[in-house]
């Protein structure tokens, strides 16, 4: 699956990216984590507050840092 982490590069966005990578490791599956920091791209995806996270193109969370366990459950869903 494709995990996208959206954020301009603040501390919280980096934490979320870290959690996403941890989740991929825990799952053991073949998932890819991509960081998106372009504002126009964020607008196109309808993101209002950062950090945000999307799985396979579907926005799953925004405005907060979710844990690696939560990201893991998103990957399984």
């Amino acid at each position: 699956m494709l995990i996208e982490v959206f954020g301009p590069g603040c501390a919280k966005c980096q934490t979320l990216e870290k959690h996403a990578k941890e989740a991929v490791e825990k799952s053991g599956g073949n998932h890819q984590v991509v960081k998106v920091s372009d504002y126009a791209a964020m607008a196109a995806r309808g993101i209002l507050s950062t950090p945000a996270l999307a799985v396979d193109g579907h926005l799953k969370s925004q405005g907060k840092v979710i844990s690696s366990d939560e990201i893991l459950s998103l990957l399984k869903a």
């Binding site: 590069g9 603040c10 501390a11 934490t15 366990d69």
Partner: peptide, 19 residues
């Protein structure tokens, strides 16, 4: 990418442990 300083804001990080 350089980190944007943002001392005034912090959104709660969800707990690492499961429910």
């Amino acid at each position: 990418m350089s980190e944007i300083p943002c001392p005034t804001c912090a959104s709660p990080t969800q707990p690492e442990t499961g429910p």
